[in-house]
């Protein structure tokens, strides 16, 4: 094909034949929908987490080995789970931006990164607090902790790259490329960290079988944290959409002020 042309699917005014995802990707529709959904998500997250905390503190046993420390797990495990899910969301959004050019894909990726980083940090923090009584030290180079630490570095890289590029469109696309590179390499990194760990510490004695009495509160907390994540993500996306609208208005203002005929145009 000897031409370069735009993909007709990405023209702004093609309303017909849009998929559900495309209609949801319309920023105006998103703002309408999220305005209704956000209070519901936030309320549900609060209720479920409060119920979960009640179960954790008053209705679950202390571990026969770990004692009361085991209650840290109810924060730690959902945070660790969300740290990965958020990265998955960033990767999917990045793919959506680069391949389908959804107008909301970058908004979603941008909003998810700091929240994901925060949960990753929480997972590291709670892991290390739990480690002090268990291992006698705040940090051990356990395979999981190390993997989560690397994930945290990947989040930091994404935030640093975005913040150091002036042009927002450029920043969005380059960050998306990095996110996809990260998600491609993540399994290899995880595999190599596990290999490294077994090489140096043949057994950590860290088992994961959970007593059924602990499983239910853990599930409740995981659901509550996920709802919290979605509420925060939605709020983050709304902020970003609003920020972009303000920016667009101000740019339009600059353009209007410039449109008055000026001497240079007479060249």
């Amino acid at each position: 094909m000897q031409s370069h042309s735009s993909n007709p699917d990405q023209r702004p005014d093609h309303r017909q034949g849009q998929s559900l995802a495309q209609r949801l990707a319309n920023p105006t529709r998103f703002m309408e929908l999220s305005a209704k959904l956000l209070p519901a998500f936030a309320g549900a997250a609060t209720a479920v987490i409060l119920y979960g905390l009640f179960l954790v503190f008053f209705n679950s046993p202390a571990d026969y080995q770990q004692g009361e420390t085991v209650r840290i797990m109810y924060i730690h495990v959902p945070s660790a789970w969300l740290s990965m899910m958020a990265y998955g969301l960033v990767a999917v959004s990045s793919f959506g931006l680069l391949v389908f050019r959804h107008p909301l894909a970058d908004v979603s990726a941008k909003a998810a990164v700091p929240i994901g980083a925060a949960f990753t940090f929480l997972a590291l923090l709670t892991g290390s607090l739990w480690g002090k009584p268990m291992w006698g030290t705040y940090w051990v180079w356990d395979a999981r902790l190390t993997s989560v630490l690397v994930l945290f570095f990947l989040y930091l890289g994404l935030m640093a790259l975005r913040s150091s590029l002036e042009d927002e469109t450029l920043a969005a696309k380059l960050t998306a490329v990095l996110a996809l590179v990260g998600v491609t390499l993540l399994p290899i990194i995880k595999f190599s960290v596990n290999w490294w760990n077994t090489l140096h510490q043949p057994s950590t004695g860290f088992t994961t079988s959970i007593d059924p009495s602990m499983r239910w509160p853990l599930w409740i907390m995981a659901i509550g944290f996920s709802l919290l994540f979605f509420a925060m993500h939605m709020k983050g996306m709304r902020n970003e959409v609003l920020r972009r609208r303000v920016k667009a208005l101000r740019l339009a203002d600059v353009a209007r002020r410039e449109s008055a005929p000026d001497p240079v145009a007479a060249e």
Binding site: Q2, H4, S6, P12
Partner: peptide, 23 residues
């Protein structure tokens, strides 16, 4: 030159040469 993505529209050479891209 084909460096920038087009929001809409097209650039082409007529008659088209199928072997080579415009760039």
């Amino acid at each position: 030159a084909g460096f920038l993505p087009l929001l809409s529209g097209a650039v082409r050479l007529e008659p088209a040469d199928d072997d080579k891209p415009l760039a």
